[in-house]
């Protein structure tokens, strides 16, 4: 019989297997873990505070009237912000109707037809630049383009166009990425049964990418819905019910901006309520985006 050596846990060669939290490497590990937990907490504090503050301040003013009535004249009690809620929905709808077709088609060109040429590279570059442009710039641009020229004047349409400019880069980029994720083999399979390029894109590639595209669109909507700067001098504001898309229109974000800085308490309360509803709207769209993403095939 040969004797076995080194099998007892106490034998020197195996002692190193045991946990030993005083080794430098383990100490470093513990410290770094602690540091990152700390950073997470610090990051979360302002986020939680903002949400909590808005909820506490706004929740008290949530009444049925909020959703059915117009804001009161300065100094008077009561009233609601129904016109701004509707206005935000209208302006965002206009922006979506403009930006989604253009954005999706542009992305289809980039991903399916451009063959990674020079044009596509420049378009992608400028899309990225555009997504970093401060939102007020898009407001100024549309002000000069539609408001000053009198084409639409201050109106829901002008506001919608300003938001569409902001939404475009997000939609182009997410759609471009969504299309790129679709495996090449599926396109080949479709071409292989005798489909043309555009039949393949319209009937196979785009449908497969729809969940990811919708996610991008919803994220773009969520961002646009909260924008104030591009709306201040395009959609302007109105204390009355929306009156056609070629008239100035109230929106939640501009209402918050206007009412938060006036010295009247009822207006300030409406501003808080408006903030809360805006936050909830954004939250809701983000949740929808999440749910839609789960339907992904690829």
């Amino acid at each position: 019989m040969t004797s076995f050596r080194g099998t007892s846990p106490e034998s020197p060669s195996l002692a190193g297997l045991r946990k030993n939290s005083s080794r430098p490497r383990d100490v470093f590990n513990i410290i770094m873990t602690g540091l990152s937990v700390l950073c997470v907490v610090i990051t979360l504090i302002p986020l939680v505070l903002v949400l909590a503050f808005v909820t506490i301040q706004g929740a008290g003013s949530i009444t049925p009237a909020l959703f059915t009535e117009l804001p009161p004249p300065p100094g008077l009690e009561g009233g609601g912000i129904a016109n701004a809620i509707i206005g935000t929905l209208i302006v965002v709808a206009i922006a979506t109707l403009i930006s989604v077709p253009f954005g999706v088609m542009a992305a289809v060109y980039l991903s399916e037809f451009s063959k990674d040429g020079q044009v596509a590279r420049w378009v992608r570059f400028f899309t990225n630049v555009l997504s970093g442009v401060p939102s007020i710039i898009s407001g100024v641009f549309v002000y000069a383009l539609l408001v000053r020229t009198g084409l639409t004047g201050y109106s829901a349409v002008a506001g919608g166009v300003a938001l569409a400019v902001l939404m475009l880069p997000t939609i182009i980029r997410t759609t471009d990425e969504a299309l790129n994720i679709i495996p090449q083999e599926i396109r080949w399979a479709s071409i292989g049964v005798g489909a043309s390029r555009y039949q393949t894109v319209l009937q196979i590639v785009l449908p497969a990418a729809i969940p990811s595209i919708l996610t991008g669109v919803t994220l773009a909507i969520a961002r646009a819905a909260g924008e104030t700067a591009p709306l201040i001098f395009t959609a302007l504001f109105s204390s009355f019910w929306p009156n056609g898309i070629l008239q100035p229109i109230a929106t939640l974000s501009v209402l918050v901006y206007n009412f938060a800085i006036v010295p009247f308490e009822p207006q300030q309360e409406l501003a808080w309520a408006g903030s809360l509803i805006l936050v909830l709207l954004v939250l809701l769209t983000s949740i929808i985006a999440r749910v839609v993403t789960r339907q992904k095939t690829y």
Partner: peptide
């Protein structure tokens, strides 16, 4: 093709 690639 090499890998089965049904349409979605």
């Amino acid at each position: 093709f090499q890998r089965p690639n049904p349409f979605p």
